[in-house]
Design a protein around this nucleic acid. Structure first.
Lengths: 250, 250
DNA sequence: GTCGAGCGGATTGTCGACAATCCGCGTTGA
DNA sequence: TCAACGCGGATTGTCGACAATCCGCTCGAC
């Protein structure tokens, strides 16, 4: 699976002021393959380096990523299909701002999928799988001790994806990956600032149930966990400014 | 509910030498909007008017649909993301051929989602929703009586989507729509030719359970139904021709 | 002072042209 | 005879240029 091999041809970066200085960090010939572009925008969004609702101007992205508009456009279309980005015709691309309704729907769907998922994993997991889960648990614990919130959010998401991977159903993994990325935006949008993805260490409890091969308990804990995470979000109606004014004089 | 409205427009565009000259502003007269293009290719695939594995050559599609390559390309990318089309780099687009493994994964995922879905619908459905379900049931019965297999396959799929719509979770509806379209390809690929989407009328039974507000029973029947449909498929290993030759001399 | 029309810059949407790549097929040499 | 090579047609991938659209702003009328 070799990535697309581009010629090291010019990327028409003509006016490039900071390129005059030494370029230790930004090599002009960074391979801007579609996958790379996609990944970078995706990470920037789910890691909250770009705020929900922000506009993603194509030309800006071209400049930032050193790619042509066509490629940027492709990446945006893909992100839009996954729900990470919203495409408004003739207006542009914006990073998604899941509404309260959508966030509820999101968790509802996850509650359907993940308890049976973990239940089946608990039944069928092998030694190697357990090792991976334990390693992940340790990484989470380390991030928690270090109080590295950003890493913790990322690892928390990856825990769920790891379960899906261990399950072995590729379609399920793909589906859950999309749900997970939207979840991470929603968390950044709605969670109470002080509360780090819910203090409790639900994942450790789930892991313990899996190790004990207690499938029913694992499923129950997963359901509880999802409820917990959702309830930590401030999903009470947040009145948006325009609606506010409009309703004030009704 | 997306009725597939086909353009009522013929596509016999032949050389139009003088028209080209006269009209410097050649507006894309036929409304080959992206949505239209997408819909037409999508329908052609899920209704099995194009065989699984067939290549979708961009220029051919341009000619057939009267659209530019850029638009076709966009539509294909979207179809690929939904799993209806497979994109091979530098090779082209092919209508998906779900493997046996993928088909099993598909049904496994549906078994996770749809029983709880119908369970919740049975609890919360209102009068209008029931009317729509009954109307759909009648349409299915009619197609069955008329022995219209193609319509029956389509309606069977739409029954599941209707349930998702009645549930009201938009994300779930979108997810299920994708699963449903891949399912319909898999059915066309693997089912025993004589057997029309499984003879029994499982949908009627599910509908009855919903009308009786027996949520648990509705869920149970849905699970049974999904198992039934999957078991009607011939998912035993089918040796493909190329592999056949290759392995014959191993 | 307010409202609407109209203008200009910025941004997206679309297309045609060209480059890169792949596949089938004929040729060649052992 | 057969395998390796390479050529030509067909197909996809990429880009730059231009058209269409939108938004904020100014200007003028009332």
């Amino acid at each position: 699976m070799v990535a697309v091999r581009h010629g090291a041809r010019s990327m028409n970066r003509r006016a490039e002021p900071e390129a005059l200085r030494r370029a230790p960090r930004r090599r002009p010939a960074r391979d801007a393959s579609l996958e790379t572009i996609y990944d970078r925008i995706f990470s920037a969004i789910v890691e909250h380096r770009i705020a929900p609702g922000a506009q993603l101007v194509e030309e800006k992205l071209c400049a930032a990523l050193g790619a042509s508009r066509a490629r940027i456009r492709q990446a945006l279309a893909r992100l839009a299909h996954e729900g990470v980005v919203t495409l408004q015709p003739n207006r542009g691309a914006f990073v998604a701002e899941p509404t309260i309704e959508q966030t509820r729907d999101l968790f509802e769907l996850r509650r359907m999928i993940e308890p049976p998922l973990v239940q089946q994993v608990a039944k069928s997991i092998d030694r190697a799988g357990l090792m991976r889960l334990r390693a992940h648990g340790n990484a989470e614990a380390a991030a928690r001790r270090a109080d590295d919130r950003r890493a913790l959010v990322r690892l928390s998401g990856e825990f769920h994806l790891l379960l899906a991977e261990l399950h072995g159903n590729a379609l399920l993994l793909k589906t859950l990956r999309e749900l997970e990325s939207i979840t991470s935006i929603a968390i950044h949008l709605y969670d109470a600032p002080a509360m780090p993805a819910c203090r409790g260490d639900d994942h450790a409890a789930i892991l313990a149930a899996i190790e004990a091969r207690d499938a029913a308990k694992a499923a129950r804990l997963m359901l509880h966990h999802l409820n917990e995470v959702e309830s930590c979000l401030r999903l009470e109606m947040r009145q948006t400014a325009p609606l506010d004014l409009h309703e004030a004089f009704a």
